[in-house]
Simulated assay, not measured.
Amino acid sequence: MNRLDIKQIQEIIPHRHPFLLVDYIEDYEPGQYAVGYKCVTYREDFFKGHFPEHPVMPGVLTVEALAQVGAVAILSEEKNKGKTAYFGGIQKCKFRGMVIPGDKIKLETKIIKSKGPVGIGQAAASVDGKVVVSAELTFIVGD
């Protein structure tokens, strides 16, 4: 298994606090897949305004976390080192559950298609084994 800590993740993708939404990568294969985790705490900035009486992580931020994990898979390939992976599209996105403070989100993105700078990742986020978000994410690798 190839594990990455937060500093190693920051060497691959450009995201930083408060927008870096991955705490560590448990395993990855460059250009193939990555599995990461986000440990959600009540101190996240978005909880101040996203239902203060009933804090819920915005679903689009869970999708972004999945995209960041996919970016680790893509940008860890030798040919893509030092580049940026941009969102190209989101297809078949389904929100199936809520993410709340105290949850540990498992983020899995598998690259299912890649041609030139464009590719597609099949992504799923789960909490305690239950899928809370799934989607196909299109990415474009640029300089």
Results as ranks from 00 to 15, higher is better:
42 Y>T: 14
37 Y>R: 05
119 G>A: 09
35 V>T: 07
117 P>K: 15
56 V>P: 04
13 I>D: 00
3 R>M: 11
51 F>S: 03
51 F>M: 08
77 E>K: 15
6 I>H: 01
123 A>N: 05
110 K>Q: 15
4 L>D: 06
16 R>Y: 06
2 N>Q: 11
125 A>G: 12
32 Q>C: 14
119 G>F: 09
76 S>D: 04
45 D>R: 15
37 Y>W: 08
142 G>I: 15
56 V>L: 11
18 P>D: 01
120 I>G: 01
22 V>Y: 07
88 G>S: 10
119 G>E: 02
143 D>R: 15
21 L>Y: 05
13 I>L: 01
18 P>E: 00
76 S>F: 10
25 I>G: 01
64 E>F: 13
89 G>S: 07
104 K>P: 11
5 D>E: 00
107 L>D: 05
134 S>Y: 11
104 K>D: 09
48 K>G: 04
93 C>G: 00
32 Q>D: 06
66 L>R: 03
46 F>K: 05
12 I>N: 00
120 I>H: 00
126 S>H: 08
18 P>Q: 01
16 R>F: 08
87 F>N: 01
139 F>W: 14
37 Y>C: 01
12 I>L: 02
43 R>D: 15
32 Q>W: 11
33 Y>N: 02
22 V>E: 00
43 R>M: 14
142 G>H: 14
62 T>N: 02
